[in-house]
Design a protein around this nucleic acid. Structure first.
Lengths: 230, 230
DNA sequence: GACGGTCTGACGGTTTGCTGACAATCTCCG
DNA sequence: CGGAGATTGTCAGCAAACCGTCAGACCGTC
């Protein structure tokens, strides 16, 4: 059974989380301040941590940093207040794996918890917690949390968009054909008479390029495919 | 040495393919109908198959399906007639790995063959993937990104221009006739008698030569063709 | 039932390629 | 040296190819 540690000082919220998580079949432990949270995380080694950033005493950032410095690599999902974009970014940089903005729907949180646990399933022997972030232009791609920052601000990408971006990133500088992209991102081999790939590329440009009509990073290679440049 | 099976009923085309593939260092076998092709593929286990879809008797689709049902997983590149969009899709659904539309330039086919074999091969740890850049004068040609730099600055080339440049580069120092260029870049059915090649050469000179009227690298060999010098 | 994500096909703009006429250049030979 | 013929260079206009864009359909989830 998966064990989850909730570090949250608000009793109502903590109670609600415990309830919902236990209904889903998780074993839940709650710590109501940062110091206790860090201790439980280090000693108990839960499978996942839900960490509020706003905590009395030792705040969430310090907990997170101390945890990673102690070599604990379990996924961490941080809770941030609406509008505190900077906190999100700082948390992700410190090694958080995902974030949820308060107020949040319980289902959204459960979905993210499930996703994180599923992804963390295969433990890497010598791994240090996933591949390092990739950068191009003012864009930073953090595979571990499927997060994209642009100029330090999180950019919401749909799953397909993110996968497509990663596929281009994996062969940065080289031409990637539409067929290759279909293979790697879509997973089946059906060349398209339609504009599926192009549509998603356009969306990526809209979200990540300064001037989508004159892209500087996500480039078209006529008659061949696309190419991502720094 | 990589072994390639060509299943093609048109003798001229089969001959041309064999020639070019052998020049590239592949060991080539040819089958001129579907039944023979299937037998050779199953028994000989080539590293790659080039399969025409239009074949007398057992057509390419049936060959492909039978091959996959027999558990053979080597990459298959299918040849389809122009405009047969549905065939392409059907072929890919049946498990083809790539397609080339007739008429095709030999260089395009060679590039795709190479790509398929590279993908099927175990990735070399220290390998840097792909052929190294070629240089002449202050020009650098990078096949992987279909990019050309001149004095370090990117020069925008159209697809035909790039392919033409690569064709000249492949035989740097030697004379390449117009007919050769038509075969390699334009396709096996070279029916162009006009000034097409010259026009594109002129454009290359305009973009890559310091003085296009007195070219130092892309040279004319009167009564023969063109020659590229460092 | 609203909503977001995804896919598709039609449409239009732009680029690219091809062509053929003409100009320029070269070669050969008178 | 000069000129004819052969060969190559140049150009602009047309047609096709190619890609970006969009609205709408579909589908699963909330």
């Amino acid at each position: 059974m998966m064990r989850i540690l909730v570090v949250e000082d608000n009793p109502d919220l903590a109670y609600g989380l415990r309830n919902n998580l236990e209904i889903e079949g998780y074993q839940v432990e709650v710590a109501d301040d940062g110091t206790k949270g860090l201790a439980r995380a280090r000693d108990g080694r839960p499978d996942l941590i839900i960490l509020d950033l706003m905590l009395p005493g030792m705040d969430g950032f310090r907990v997170l940093r101390a945890l990673r410095e102690a070599g604990r690599t379990m996924p961490v999902l941080i809770l941030t207040a609406r509008g505190e974009e900077a906190d999100k970014v700082r948390g992700l940089r410190l090694g958080a794996d995902d974030y949820v903005t308060k107020p949040f729907g319980v289902l959204e949180l459960l979905a993210r918890v499930e996703a994180l646990l599923r992804r963390a399933a295969p433990p890497v022997p010598g791994g240090n917690g996933g591949p390092p972030p990739e950068r191009f232009g003012d864009v930073e791609v953090i595979p571990a949390s499927r997060t994209v920052l642009r100029g330090g601000q999180p950019v919401p990408l749909t799953p397909k968009e993110f996968d497509l971006l990663v596929a281009l990133l994996r062969r940065r500088g080289a031409v990637v054909t539409r067929l290759d992209l279909l293979r790697e991102v879509w997973g089946y081999s059906a060349e398209v008479l339609s504009r599926t790939v192009d549509t998603h590329v356009a969306e990526l440009r809209r979200k990540l390029e300064t001037d989508p009509a004159a892209p500087r990073h996500i480039l078209t290679v006529r008659k061949s495919g696309y190419r991502l440049e720094r």
